[in-house]
């Protein structure tokens, strides 16, 4: 038996919005530690690694580890039937061919449940080694979304150049070119508005804006995003999943291989 109850159900709705355009289907691997999902997009260019920690749920029961094969578009459609303030419970029997979602209104005066068929998925997992990145850039997630959106006007790719002075995002195309420079924040009252660069070595890499724009769908989950880069390894874009009190409930991480010159 697997059962997980999340009082702040809107978090699960946001998690689905952050992956449904990038992935068609994926397995939720449920264990005592929590619910994990790892999947590549259909073109095998980007990788999503997602964790919802068991102690982030108000109730969590997982008698034995199970893998729930899910059509993510279907799950997203069902979660849209939940109100933003609903409590969401996910339930699956061992060896079941279906998963149940229960939505309770805060006053408990409206309870709905939806059963969705599970899929048999032959999933591939990639081993992601622990990496000490040369640069880790933390910035407001809304700022990163805006940069990706704005530079998409100019080209398909963005060059991210991280030095001790700050970060420069550049794009060029037939129209012309554009640059956005962010300096490290000297003094900010609010931590979520800060730009912080932790740099061991300067790095310049090129990435597809199409994929970065997919990643920014996770911005509603977190006020800050971190970009971790080293030469010749995939970029890691991480959004921490925090509840209203700021306690960590997990993360969504996206990995994207750099583009190389033809």
């Amino acid at each position: 038996m697997f059962e997980a109850r999340l009082v702040e159900g809107s978090l699960l709705k946001k998690v689905m919005e952050s992956i449904k355009d990038l992935l068609n289907e994926a397995s939720w691997d449920c264990s005592g530690n929590g619910m994990c999902l790892q999947a590549m997009d259909s073109s095998h260019v980007a990788l999503v690694s997602l964790m919802l920690k068991s102690d982030g749920f108000e109730n969590y029961r997982c008698d034995r580890s199970i893998s729930l094969g899910i059509n993510l578009a279907s799950m997203s459609k069902i979660l849209k039937c939940a109100s933003n303030d609903d409590i969401i419970t996910i339930r699956a029997e061992d060896d079941a061919d279906a998963i149940t979602f229960m939505f309770e209104s805060p006053k408990q005066d409206r309870v709905s449940d939806y059963e969705m068929k599970l899929m048999n998925l032959d999933t591939e997992h990639l081993g992601i080694p622990d990496t000490e990145y040369a640069c880790v850039i933390k910035m407001p997630s809304g700022e990163f979304s805006r940069i990706c959106r704005d530079l998409s006007v100019l080209g398909d790719s963005v060059i991210i150049c991280c030095t001790k002075d700050g970060v420069r995002f550049s794009a060029k195309g037939d129209l012309g070119n554009g640059n956005i420079k962010l300096a490290q924040s000297a003094n900010v009252d609010k931590e979520e508005e800060a730009v912080v660069v932790d740099m061991r070595e300067a790095v310049t890499l090129t990435f597809s804006l199409r994929y970065l724009n997919f990643f920014t769908k996770a911005a509603p989950l977190s006020s800050q995003v971190s970009l971790s880069m080293s030469e010749d390894v995939p970029l890691m874009v991480e959004y921490k999943i925090n509840d209203k009190e700021g306690d960590s409930k997990g993360y969504v991480r996206y990995y994207l291989a750099p583009k190389i010159e033809d």
Binding site: H44, V45, L126, R210, P234, Y255, A257
Partner: peptide
């Protein structure tokens, strides 16, 4: 996309 590497070029299947 031109010049775009696959992610599995970097991470081995486990």
């Amino acid at each position: 996309e031109s010049g775009q590497q696959e992610i599995s070029t970097y991470y081995a299947r486990s």
